[in-house]
């Protein structure tokens, strides 16, 4: 029997705004399957986003949904989670939203290790505004504001998250659709701040400028560069050149923020 996505989609809110060939819809379906697997209760689950194409995702889903301001999802979500720690709080957004304007909120959510899951759809570009380079645009790539090639080095989102203190960090791709729900489900189950970076594609504003002839070519690139963690362990640095490691990259048990704050309340009330 095929999976019933409609159970989680708000009636009347489709079609979505995403262009044909965009991977965001693949991620949304992965998120829905993960939520279904875990049996998260709709009333007890908040999905929070910032601004951008990816950040339109919450509006389509039938949960408590909060479409905030550019880059601010993690900070709004922190308020929700602190006030109602029993809620499942899931953040979604793009690479520009999360690592540029929202970079500060992102690293501090990692540092606090607050029990939320952040899904970053990294398509290497600001799509909604028409294809300006983001902190995740590869050096040398073309964007509407890097007409001569991008002089900026790019962030490694996963390394950034690990460095900032996130205790679960995973990476998948929009090509590896069936892996997405598993990574997200494991992230949500993890107690602490979990980050799932999904390498995504933007055929409209990135692909066209960077000589990808088709969506299929962009998807094939994701397939070609991805190396699962286990396989990567057996490869030499030379063999890993130009590859991107996927799977669960980091996992650690550490005190979680709302649990620690519950102890603060206990101490204050003694």
């Amino acid at each position: 029997m095929s999976f019933d996505y409609d159970k989680y989609i708000r009636p009347g809110k489709l079609p979505h705004i995403w262009c044909p060939g965009c991977g965001h819809g693949i991620v949304m379906k992965g998120l829905i399957r993960a939520i279904d697997t875990l049996g998260l209760e709709k009333n007890n689950t908040a999905i929070v986003s910032g601004i951008g194409c990816a950040s339109r995702l919450p509006g389509y889903l039938d949960f408590c949904t909060l479409h905030t301001a550019h880059g601010r999802a993690a900070a709004f979500a922190t308020g929700v989670k602190m006030a109602k720690p029993e809620m499942n709080v899931i953040l979604v957004g793009g690479d520009g939203d999360g690592t540029a304007i929202g970079g500060n909120h992102f690293i501090h959510a990692c540092r606090r290790n607050i029990n939320m899951t952040y899904i970053i759809m990294n398509n290497n570009i600001y799509g909604m505004t028409g294809g300006q380079f983001s902190p995740c645009t590869p050096t040398g790539a073309k964007a509407s504001t890097t007409p001569y090639g991008n002089p900026d080095p790019a962030f490694d989102v996963a390394k950034l998250a690990i460095g900032a203190g996130a205790t679960f960090v995973a990476r998948g791709t929009a090509y590896h659709a069936t892996q997405i729900d598993k990574l997200i489900a494991e992230a949500i189950q993890h107690k602490g701040f979990s980050v799932v970076e999904i390498l995504d594609d933007c055929p409209t504003t990135y692909g066209r400028r960077n000589k990808y002839k088709s969506v299929i070519e962009m998807m094939n690139r994701l397939k070609d560069v991805a190396v699962p963690v286990k396989a990567a362990e057996k490869m030499t640095p030379e063999q890993l050149e130009g590859k991107i490691i996927t799977g669960v990259l980091y996992k650690e048990e550490k005190p979680e923020y709302t649990t620690e704050y519950a102890k603060v309340i206990e101490r204050a009330q003694k």
């Binding site: 929070v48 909060l66 905030t68 301001a69 601010r72 900070a75 709004f76 979500a77 922190t78 308020g79 929700v80 989670k81 602190m82 006030a83 109602k84 809620m87 500060n104 909120h105 690293i107 501090h108 704050y261």
Partner: peptide, 19 residues
């Protein structure tokens, strides 16, 4: 909660108020 910056502080109070 002491947030990472003023904007984050404002965001957190809106998030909390919505609960």
């Amino acid at each position: 909660i002491q947030m990472e910056d003023e904007i984050g502080a404002m965001a957190s109070v809106i998030g909390a108020s919505l609960t």
